[in-house]
Structure formats: structure tokens, C-alpha cells
């Protein structure tokens, strides 16, 4: 195991990686068929963040998460979780990580409680004397206390999802990895999960949340990374990411044709006229001048708004394609 890398000089990102909860360097996974699932991923998840891991289905999110959890060995590159290398340090890292990977998996013939007891027993650092209390607390936390004695195969999809979450919450964790946690849930269930995530984050737990739903990420995450086709496209604070993309100017007016002409004169590009709405990429100049020009041309303006860019806009700007395109 001691394989000194004498050739490797002190790396500049070393300090940054130290307080990162997850840090990967050139993480690559090529499956046996030759398919490149993850390609040179450099991911940094700061401690205390709620980190959105975004990407269409098939973009390599799950493969990345499996590598982080030590389930898949990277083809090359390295991954560090809680400052320790994975998968080598699985034994010390994983007890402090709760995970929900690709949906819950349960023993249908066991009750919800027995499922949790089994997963808790699988953790060699879990004290068997307090196992029942831990399980009861976890069930309580996800609102399954009443259904704990029911066989898991009788659970609805939402209940299974919650039980999976409960398994991730058996111990106090430093990192929670939640892969598509709201998949298959009704809007009420989704809201509950998001509330739970915010709660956990406020306790200081870092949450790594993968999703293909943009608004979900936008609602709960402080940081985000975007993946497409196995590559990391961008990462950073959600606010910075949206700021990177420019907003759009929206003018509401009954004189749409005239408004469009004026806006074009004023240097706005990409004009779209849709009924009484004219949208355009705002010109470089002061928007007050633009408004004045409209008024001067006797365009009756009902509304004049600069719409802030959404994460989706950021994504489209980055990839040049729609979000739902599968990699």
C-alpha cells in the first residue's frame, strides 16, 4: 500500500482538498466493454455544503457515487472522502457516511425495522447494545415509526424511499450521499425530503445530492456540479453558476412589433416576439436608456423586467443542449 510517489511534486490543490469532504483527481472509470462512464473528474465538495450533483440520466453520476463509496474501483485517478482515499479507507470512512444509492433496496420478507437492524448490524463500528434505539430513532425521523413492523414488501415506493433514508441516518454522519432521493415520490414526499435535507445541513452534515431535477437542486443546494457524458462541465456555488449566465430582458407591451424594432436598434440580440411579450438578450448599454428609447418611440410598456438566469439557462449555456437529453 505504501507506494510513495516520489515523482509527484507538492500539488497546489492539496490544501484545498484537505477541508473538502469529497475531492477527486482525474477520476476515470472505463467499463470492461470500453465504455467511458466517467472521464477525468475533478470534483471538490466543500465541508458543510449542500452539494447538488446534476446531470441527465446516464451522465456518469451514479458511477461517480459508486466510486466514492468504494463499490467500484476507478480505472484511474483518485477519490478522497472525508480526507481519506477511497476505496482503500472504506472501513474508516464509510461509518461516517450515510448513503442512498440508486433508490432503496430492502429485504421484502423482513419488516422495516428488521431491515434497519440488519443494515446497522453490517456496520462493525455500531454498538449492538444501542442498536434498537438507533433504529427506532431513525424510523421516527423519517416518519415510519408506526409502519416499522410491517413487511417491507408491503411498503409503498415512498415508504421504501424513506426507509432507505432511515438506513442512511442510523448514525450521526459527516456526509450524506443521496442519489436521486425524491425519485418516485409525490410532491408532498418531495417537500418532506427537502425539508429533511435542509435540517440535516443545518446540523452541519455535508449533503451530496444527485438529481436530474434542476429545480430541486436550485431549491436546496448551496453548491452544484454539472455532469454530462461522463465529464464535469462546471462546479461551484449555485449563485455563481447562475450569475455566469446572462439574464433576459422581458418587455410586456401591446405594441410588440414596434418594441422589437426599437430593441433591435438599441442593440438587443436574439429577439423573440410572443404575443405581447418580447424577450431579448439585453444589450450592453444601460437598460434605463433602452427603456427611455422605447417610451420615446411611443411603445406602451406594461412591464420591463430583467429575468435572472436560472440554473437551466446556465446548463443550456454550458452544454448548448436541452437538459433532458440522455448522455
Amino acid at each position: 500500500m505504501a507506494e510513495p510517489s516520489a515523482t509527484e511534486p507538492e500539488r497546489p490543490h492539496q490544501e484545498r482538498a484537505d477541508d473538502a469532504v469529497i475531492a477527486t483527481r482525474g477520476l476515470t472509470k472505463r467499463y470492461r466493454g470500453g465504455q467511458l462512464a466517467v472521464d477525468g473528474l475533478d470534483l471538490t465538495v466543500p465541508a458543510g455544503s449542500v452539494f447538488g450533483f446534476l446531470g441527465p440520466n446516464g451522465s456518469g453520476k451514479t458511477t461517480t457515487i459508486r466510486m466514492l463509496m468504494g463499490l467500484i474501483e476507478p480505472t484511474s485517478g483518485s477519490a478522497r472522502v472525508l480526507g481519506r482515499p477511497m476505496p482503500r479507507a472504506s472501513r474508516t470512512v464509510l461509518p461516517r457516511v450515510g448513503a442512498l444509492i440508486e433508490g432503496p433496496a430492502l429485504y421484502g420478507f423482513l419488516s422495516g425495522r428488521d431491515n434497519l437492524l440488519r443494515y446497522d448490524a453490517a456496520d462493525p463500528t455500531a454498538d449492538p447494545r444501542t442498536r434498537r434505539e438507533r433504529v427506532a430513532a431513525a424510523l421516527d425521523r423519517v416518519g415510519l415509526a408506526a409502519a416499522g413492523g410491517k413487511k417491507a414488501k408491503a411498503y409503498s415506493l415512498g415508504m421504501k424511499q424513506r426507509l432507505g433514508l432511515a438506513a442512511a441516518l442510523l448514525q450521526p454522519r459527516r456526509l450524506l450521499v443521496l442519489d436521486e432521493p425524491t425519485n418516485g415520490l409525490d410532491p408532498q414526499g418531495m417537500r418532506e425530503i427537502r425539508t429533511l435535507v435542509r435540517e440535516l445541513a443545518s446540523d452541519g452534515t455535508t449533503v451530496f445530492l444527485s438529481s436530474h431535477l434542476l429545480d430541486e437542486i436550485e431549491q436546496v443546494c448551496t453548491h452544484a456540479a454539472v455532469m454530462a457524458q461522463g465529464r464535469l462541465i462546471t462546479q461551484g456555488a449555485v449563485a455563481d453558476l447562475s450569475a455566469g449566465a446572462r439574464g433576459r430582458l422581458v418587455v410586456t407591451t401591446p405594441d410588440a412589433g414596434e418594441a422589437a424594432r426599437v430593441l433591435k436598434e438599441q442593440g438587443a440580440a436574439d429577439l423573440v416576439v410572443d404575443g405581447d411579450r418580447v424577450t431579448a438578450e439585453p444589450p450592453e448599454r444601460d437598460l434605463a436608456e433602452v427603456n427611455a428609447a422605447l417610451v420615446a418611440a411611443r411603445v406602451r410598456v406594461r412591464g420591463f423586467v430583467l429575468e435572472r438566469a436560472s440554473l437551466e439557462d446556465a446548463f443550456v449555456a454550458l452544454t448548448g443542449e436541452g437538459f433532458d437529453v440522455a448522455g
Partner: peptide
């Protein structure tokens, strides 16, 4: 040896070793 696991370096060598 504490530091030994810091030496996880990316690259071909790692791939071969794995």
C-alpha cells in the same frame, strides 16, 4: 505510513497497479 495513503496519484501507474 500515515501519509502513505496520500500518495494516491492519478495516472497510468495507478491503473496498472490496480
Amino acid at each position: 505510513p500515515i501519509d502513505s495513503d496520500d500518495n494516491t496519484t492519478a495516472g497510468e501507474g495507478e491503473e496498472l497497479r490496480a
